[in-house]
Each structure stands twice: as C-alpha cells, then as structure tokens.
C-alpha cells in the first residue's frame, strides 16, 4: 500500500515538474497549491479504505481537467 501511495504521489509530482518550466511565474504558486490539494485528497481517500486502483482513476480524472487549465495558461504566456 505504501508503494502504491508513493506511485500516486510520484505521478502527481511528475505532472507538476513537467509543466512548471513553461508556466508564467504568476501561475506557479497556484499550480503548487492545487498539487498539494490533490495530494491531501489522495490521503483522505486512502483513509476511507478506497482502493488504490480507484484512487488512481479518481486522480487521473482530476489531473486531466487540471492539465486543461495549465495548457490554457501556457497558451496565454505564448501570446504575450
């Protein structure tokens, strides 16, 4: 279970570091906050006994919409 949790957290960390270099500086703190909230949610879901597979699927759904917002922010930076 511990390994699974680390995998989910690593998945989130990898996602943030992938985009961070391309983000406008003003947006980075918001992205980090959102990432921390995803990690907290993952922990809260684990405490309810939800399975790791289910949590992975949940987080994947949330990351997809998160990614869309980040891409919008990057497009905006490109326009400047």
């Amino acid at each position: 279970m511990s390994t699974d949790r680390h995998e989910t957290t690593a998945q989130l960390e990898g996602f943030v570091s992938r985009w961070e270099a391309e983000l406008p500086a003003e947006i980075v703190p918001v992205v980090h906050e959102h990432y921390q909230n995803l990690v907290q949610l993952t922990k809260a879901l684990q405490a309810t006994g939800r399975s790791q597979d289910q949590i992975r699927r949940d987080v994947h759904v949330l990351i997809c919409s998160y990614e869309a917002k980040i891409l919008e922010a990057i497009r905006l930076e490109d326009m400047r």
């Binding site: 918001v30 906050e33 959102h34 998160y66 917002k69």
Partner: peptide, 20 residues
Amino acid sequence: SFASLIVSQMELRLVSRHDT
C-alpha cells in the same frame, strides 16, 4: 479535501482566463 481542490481549481480558472 474536495472543497480545497475546488477553490484551487477556481483560482487556476481565474488565472488561466486573465491576461497576466
């Protein structure tokens, strides 16, 4: 935890819709 996520999603929505 979901509520915190909603607020940070709203912040992301705000910054991504506004020209910085």
